[in-house]
Computed example of a mutant assay.
Amino acid sequence: MKNLNYPLTLKFKVAVINPQFSVADEMERPVAFVKQKAFKLKEDISVYKSAEQSNLLYKIKADRWLDYNASYSFLDSSGKESGRLVRKGARSLWKAEYELYDENGKQDLLIQEDNPWVRVADNFLGEIPFLGLLTGYLFNPTYNITRPDGTQVATFRKKPDLVSRAFTLEKNAAFEEGEETRLVLGVMMMVFLERARG
């Protein structure tokens, strides 16, 4: 997953047992189709080239069944690890924070929720009849993706939408070697975790 045309759009399919979404580029060409196995104790995500699910690109596997400080490895179709996403447990309870590591175990990116109050307002107001219908349009979290030196390389945000769940990934700086693949796979895993979080 490199040299993609940004922004990317991630759009969830509705009314399906296994959570899944498609990824398209700026020209609306398919980039990937991502599917989570339902009813698994440990997260098991498959990334395919298309919705036909005939060409497996990556697997994302959790190292434990509880996601408190869990690590999610990115494995290509041959089983080779290209990096991993780590959820920062206690810190992520209030403000979502994830670290991305390369294949050598060195941290190279950080994903941080911009404003946790957006999620709080969405959860709280979502329980109020009629007003809850508007929260998907009014409250849309943003996540900043930076290097350890503070350089912002990308922005991930939920799109305003009353019905479906759609997100965009925008590129803010040139990627370094291997960074793009880890970033895109990390965002794919994170969107499943954040969706479950609320």
Rank of each mutant, 00 (worst) to 15 (best):
M188Y: 05
Q53N: 07
G178K: 13
E99L: 13
P19H: 03
F33S: 06
R147Y: 03
F192H: 01
D149M: 13
M190H: 09
L131S: 07
T9W: 02
D25C: 02
L10T: 01
V31Y: 04
R182K: 12
D161L: 07
L138D: 04
V191C: 10
T142I: 15
M189P: 01
A166C: 02
L134T: 14
A174V: 07
E177I: 11
D122L: 10
V184L: 02
G186Q: 01
K80P: 01
E28P: 00
D114C: 00
K171D: 03
K11Y: 08
V47A: 11
P116A: 05
F74S: 12
A96Q: 14
V23F: 13
E26K: 13
N3E: 13
V47P: 00
V184T: 06
K11I: 11
R157L: 03
V191N: 14
P148T: 02
Q112G: 09
R147E: 02
F12Q: 09
V163M: 10
G186Y: 09
V184I: 08
E177M: 12
S78N: 10
F124D: 08
F175P: 10
N3M: 08
E99R: 13
L185V: 03
E179K: 05
P30S: 09
D102N: 14
V120C: 06
D122Y: 15
K59V: 06
Q36P: 04
L131D: 07
Q53K: 09
V34K: 00
N5H: 13
V47F: 02
E28G: 00
G186I: 13
G105M: 15
N3H: 12
S54D: 05
V120N: 12
F175A: 15
L75E: 11
V14H: 08
N18M: 10
N140Q: 03
E113M: 04
V191K: 05
L162I: 12
A51W: 00
N140E: 04
A166W: 00
A24Q: 09
L193D: 15
G150N: 06
T155A: 11
A166K: 11
L93R: 13
S92Q: 13
E176K: 15
D44Q: 11
L133H: 07
Y98F: 15
S46H: 08
R157Q: 11
R84S: 15
D25W: 04
A174M: 11
D149Y: 08
